[in-house]
Design a protein around this nucleic acid. Sequence first.
DNA 1: ACTCGATAATAGCGATCGCTACGAAAAAGC
DNA 2: GCTTTTTCGTAGCGATCGCTATTATCGAGT
Lengths: 198, 198
Amino acid sequence: MQESKRQRRPRREFNREEGINKAQALFHRYGFDGVGVAALTEALDINPPSLYAAYGSKIGLFERTLERYVVEQGLPLSEIFAEDRSLGDGIRHLFIAAADQYSRDASCPGCLVTEGARAADPDARSIALRIGNQMAEALKAAISSHAPDQADTLTDVIVTTLRGFSAAAYAGMKPERLRAVAGFSGELLARELDSAGS
Amino acid sequence: MQESKRQRRPRREFNREEGINKAQALFHRYGFDGVGVAALTEALDINPPSLYAAYGSKIGLFERTLERYVVEQGLPLSEIFAEDRSLGDGIRHLFIAAADQYSRDASCPGCLVTEGARAADPDARSIALRIGNQMAEALKAAISSHAPDQADTLTDVIVTTLRGFSAAAYAGMKPERLRAVAGFSGELLARELDSAGS
DNA sequence: ACTCGATAATAGCGATCGCTACGAAAAAGC
DNA sequence: GCTTTTTCGTAGCGATCGCTATTATCGAGT
């Protein structure tokens, strides 16, 4: 019976990198908890065993997704905080860049890492928090090269501000409004820093 | 057989208001998706049918929880933005009050409504977003009485900043650091507003 | 005392969760 | 050609999800 309903596909040898793309979109849109293995396998057009063979587990795939996200879509800090630019200018650019990226695609609002830290799953949360902390450290290093004495406070302020941008975008704030907020906040902070003459 | 293993409890007639307290703690700590009906019934020390008789559904209980939260723990806007106080002073106080409340209890970090808007469940999200928007409208009304012409932008900036505070607290930022961020941001914004002479 | 409406407890519904044992088919080696 | 190895497919595991039909027990009314 059932002769040969299988192997309909000629050995697809599916692309893992492309799979992470699809998974990234799903995780960003619906969150770690909102995406089941069934949804992932359907989106990647593979079966559960293939997913586990390729990525180990659902949370393994999530971790890979976050790591690729920071590499490919992470804000270019070294470029934004270039040496020939004032700290205030850097922050202005950083805020605008973040606001644009977070609200550009309404299907993927906010920062994947920041929003991933809200997962109900403890493992997913700790992974997202770890990667988020790495990004914060990188930011602090970039700031330290301009204003070493107030790097701690400034990093906290900026990280908190960016988290607000991400949350606002996730809550549905339109790009123009979020950009206006970023412009306002960045201008305020930049004037304060550049006028104080660090 | 099994004679009378039931009715161990003498007809407790459980307290619904107290039940919402317990549920609020759970939802705040673990999020809507992270709390199952089993956890709720165990915390309230009741059985599933009682929960559904009292609150209708899990999401019904969640909605009641949010509504009570804004009434009992919502930031007192009319007091913070009192008429005899400058807009800048109001914002300073608002930021400090929010930072304190969001980080006071490490087991309930952030704002329940703001963090609730990150639930994977679409119904829970829309409820939290609706209540959050109501709070934003109330804030806008309070600001309008001081600076009607820039109420829109200011509301966006403040709401986004508060979202950042909530997210930072949820990510584990300690009370002193979050308070420092709130002091810094509030001072910056207050000086800008009060110096411009609205 | 006895009935009766209200309420709580047991048990379990169908669905989905993350995950995997196992067998079939394609690629690789001889 | 045939065997071996590797990959993929089906099917389904145990656990948990939100929720409820049914039954047992209470308190109130007469």
